[in-house]
Design a binder for these strands. Structure first.
Lengths: 162, 162
DNA sequence: TTCATTGCAAATTATTTGCATTTGA
DNA sequence: TCAAATGCAAATAATTTGCAATGAA
């Protein structure tokens, strides 16, 4: 099951919510940046290019709404802000849920895909009765480059996309 | 390899750092609350009982130091604050690294132990060259009780220990 | 003595909220 | 028309930081 832009509009209307330019633009920006980890500020700056009057509060309210609609996932890379990415429910492209490898030295964030966790989810459901709907998995360590040059200019820990 | 209280003092001295009452008390509080997820505020309140003059900033600086010393792990349960627990390196008790099941309905946090991730860590190291030193895994969903009484008084989402 | 540490208060910063105004249905 | 949505500014709240005073070695 996949959600298209038209579906999205219908979903809003069905709930008595309104289709606004702001909502469409936020969705578009997120869809155009699949697999990037976007902060509210990042989204804000991009939407501003098309719609200079938008307010940051609207971005926050919109991603909250999208999260409830299961249109975006929130990720936390422990750098002091929350990040958002469009969910695999939107627009079909079957994207496996991925994990993040976070380099403690240079701050780089590397995505890693695999399905081993499905097995674990089933184990949890059997053993605890807890119904899993989502998960977040982060690995901390050192990336290949930083391992090579151990004398790597001791990084800032700032978020870096890969 | 396990770190004792004496080891801890030695580690500090070796680095030219000082053994203070505040540091000893924070360590003690954390050790006495294994498997609880303690906020800085929680630690602060408990240390205050023995040492009423301690400042909150000292708690923050101390857990930062302990993290660098690998004495505590930091966990993020997405409730707006960071939590700390003593690491399995301290005082021997072999505690498996555990994961957290977070109930979206009532906010309960259930620990879950297993070792499946070791396998995954080895896979990552082989495929990406990334050296994993730690991980954090959270599952979101609904706990058994909330599933039963779906009409569960729609929870606050506040952190609840189990 | 001397430099690391502390407590306090002020600063920082991501996110949320109140409210008057605007806008989609 | 009218409730939902927005932009703005102010509020919130966890964490960090500057600095003078304190304390461990």
């Amino acid at each position: 099951m996949s959600i298209s832009k038209e579906n999205f509009k219908k979903m809003l209307r069905e709930k008595g919510l309104k289709v606004t330019n702001q909502r469409l633009l936020v969705l578009e920006v997120l869809a155009d940046h699949r697999d990037k980890h976007m902060t509210a500020e990042d989204i804000y700056d991009l939407v501003k290019e098309d719609y200079p009057d938008i307010g940051l509060a609207t971005i926050y309210r919109t991603v909250q709404l999208f999260r409830k609609m299961q249109l975006v996932d929130r990720i936390n890379l422990d750098d002091g802000c929350l990040r958002y990415e469009i969910s695999d429910l939107f627009d079909g492209e079957t994207k496996h849920h991925h994990h993040h490898l976070i380099c403690k030295t240079c701050g780089k964030v590397i995505p890693f895909e695999e399905d081993l966790l499905d097995e674990l989810e089933r184990l949890i459901e059997k053993e605890t009765g807890f119904l899993v709907s989502d998960h977040e998995l982060k690995f901390y360590g050192q990336c290949e480059e930083c391992l090579k040059k151990q004398h790597c200019i001791s990084g800032t820990g700032t978020h870096v996309e890969v």
